[in-house]
């Protein structure tokens, strides 16, 4: 049986095509061309809600439908925060961040990757609530307000409202957080600055203490 040259060429082309496909399937791709270490700022926190509160009189409360009656009525907005980062004394980030969503009342999400040279650096990360004019969350103290009669739907409502406001404030991020640290990253290493919810503070994490 003779072997046709075209058949050999066809088989060779098929093999080359298949091997080429396999080669392109595992070819090296430049993932991160820059070999600098990176200081990654990543956290998500609930912004503090800054409110102007007012205690409603009995007459005002009577005008509101029964299921919507709240003795202390608060209006306000979520706080904005200034994020400032300095490396060896030089400012590399200075910006204001707000919560997500159309009303900025969703959590504040911070994600920045800052390339820094390998070696020792003094890093300061500061996250501070921006001052907000015209709002006062201490107004509307309801402690002096008499609670409704024990046999009505409104019984204990005043206390529950106060509790709810306190809980919400506790969930919010502190008004000021500052991380002052020295870092010594290697090439391509990522150092993470994040929010520790238990310590309610910014912390530095590396591969060694990753969760």
């Amino acid at each position: 049986m003779s072997i046709r040259p075209l058949a050999v060429l066809g088989a060779a082309l098929a093999v080359v095509g298949t091997v080429g496909t396999a080669a392109l399937s595992r070819a090296p791709l430049a993932a991160y061309p820059d070999d600098s270490p990176v200081l990654r700022l990543a956290w998500s926190v609930r912004p503090e809600r800054i409110e102007r509160c007012r205690t409603l009189s009995d007459a005002e409360l009577a005008d509101v439908p029964a299921h919507m009656r709240q003795r202390v009525q608060c209006e306000g907005r979520s706080a904005a925060y200034r994020l400032a980062v300095t490396v060896d004394g030089g400012t590399v980030v200075d910006t204001v961040v707000t919560g997500g969503g159309a009303r900025s009342d969703r959590p504040v999400y911070v994600f920045r990757e800052l390339a820094i040279p390998a070696g020792r650096h003094a890093v300061v990360v500061r996250f501070e609530r921006e001052p907000m004019a015209g709002v006062d969350s201490t107004a509307g103290d309801s402690s002096a307000v008499a609670d409704a009669a024990a046999d009505t739907l409104m019984a204990g409502r005043v206390g529950r409202e106060a509790e709810e406001r306190t809980r919400r404030q506790g969930e919010a991020v502190p008004a000021l957080m500052e991380l002052v640290t020295d870092v010594r990253p290697l090439a391509r290493e990522v150092m993470l600055v994040t929010y520790d919810i238990d310590r309610r503070a910014l912390v530095l994490r590396t591969r060694d203490d990753a969760p």
Binding site: L24, A30, Y32, D35, R188
Partner: peptide, 16 residues
């Protein structure tokens, strides 16, 4: 590894 940025990765170019 979220704490390391490799220079290259072995990629499938047909999908990447």
């Amino acid at each position: 590894d979220p704490f390391f940025r490799p220079a290259t990765v072995p990629a499938d170019y047909f999908f990447a």
